[in-house]
Design a binder for these strands. Structure first.
Lengths: 219, 219
DNA sequence: CAATATACTTTGATTACTCAAAGTTCTCAT
DNA sequence: ATGAGAACTTTGAGTAATCAAAGTATATTG
């Protein structure tokens, strides 16, 4: 039985590999994502490799085994179903659910998870717009296009917000940036590192590249 | 911030002290309840005392401080609200919820707990018939009368089942022994250590003293 | 190609638990 | 009041996870 620390490492590795579209993940990204020192992550990687969760290529990175990926996918499923429950059923705010789910995902059993999935009506995506893996670990491929890659004059639909920071999410909601919303790109100044948007009839506003990268869209 | 181990020790101490109606709890009962060796519990007690959760009287036992009791009550509240949720909302079976709640109670935040309480309609008791402490840590006094103390010919109402063992709970349900049920005591043979009951129109059956002690009733 | 910077690994120590087994104190029945 | 047994404490050792700091390999850049 994996400890919750093991679960966290594997989930983080999966998240990075989904983000970068590359199955091999460097040590540093994982350590940073989990807020541990690089030495700690190295030690843990050797441990995880010994237990068959991943392959460890020193100074190069890690790659999840089938077993490791299955567990990581399951963690993502737990996390996203719990987030959905917290928003849909209990009425918590979009911006405060990440940390809550982060704790609960290690405590919920497979049986309860199944009942919860059923209770929620087997949702396909969480409140951030992220796809929820199926019980078998299959996940819908996310859009590769972010607001940053949109041309001036285009009109796109928000698919998801790939950031868990409460402050950013609060800001996004205030500006009506959430899954399903239609956004007009008024201008895109590559050199100024800024993109100007309009959502619905509200006043136009600008986002820098850091922020617009976090918003995935569909044409 | 207390670890979940600390939470478990304090909750166990509270449970024993409620059961025995005595605020001072001997080491052994706690160690046994938590399935740890007596040495482990002793070490932990010193630690808990140092951190102000309880008073430790060597070779005599422990007594929760105000702070310790507050946390323990809160754990009981979490546990019982979660059990209620698992049965009422998700439809899990009465007999399988204890272990599930045991894990979740350490992971749920105060905020989510509040929302859950509201969602459930602020229930006063859990599926086993145990009172749910209020947010302030107030708890309804449980009945001191068990089936064991009932005379032949009496007719009583079940208040609660004070056992978490899945097998016993399954048996109890099969025999229609659950909170709210009315039971007739047909005979009570002190020497034979047996009590014979009838619930509704079903066939009478007998319980030993171990079992009948676990069923609290109101006249 | 050497110097440096970056990314990673190793080492030694710490914290929060846990157990087994040896040692101590207390109680109570003779 | 004493000696046996129960209940408790102490001791020594182990596991899982962590960090800081020192060490090593690799890439980049002048």
């Amino acid at each position: 039985m994996p400890t919750s620390t093991v679960e966290n490492y594997l989930k983080q590795i999966l998240i990075v590999s989904l983000e970068t579209n590359c199955p091999e993940v460097p040590m540093g990204k994982v350590a940073q994502g989990l807020s541990v020192t690089s030495g700690t992550a190295t030690t843990m990687f050797k441990n995880l490799a010994e237990n068959g969760w991943l392959h460890y290529y020193p100074r190069r990175g890690v790659r999840l085994t089938r077993k490791g990926k299955a567990l990581a996918m399951n963690m993502l499923r737990r996390h996203r179903l719990l987030e959905t429950f917290l928003v849909e059923t209990l009425g918590l705010d979009w911006s405060e659910i990440h940390q809550e789910a982060e704790e609960l995902e290690h405590a919920i059993s497979e049986k309860v998870l199944e009942k919860l999935d059923e209770f929620l009506g087997r949702p396909r995506q969480d409140p951030h717009g992220h796809p929820i893996p199926s019980r078998g670990g299959v996940i819908r491929r996310s859009s590769t296009q972010s607001l940053l890659s949109c041309k001036a004059g285009s009109k796109v639909t928000i698919e998801s917000i790939t950031d868990q920071e409460s402050d950013f999410l609060k800001f996004a909601r205030k500006k009506q940036l959430f899954p399903g919303q239609v956004v007009s790109v008024l201008s895109h100044e590559k050199l100024a590192d800024a993109i100007t948007l309009q959502v619905g009839g509200a006043a136009p506003f600008s986002l820098g590249s850091r922020s617009s990268e976090k918003i995935l869209v569909q044409a």
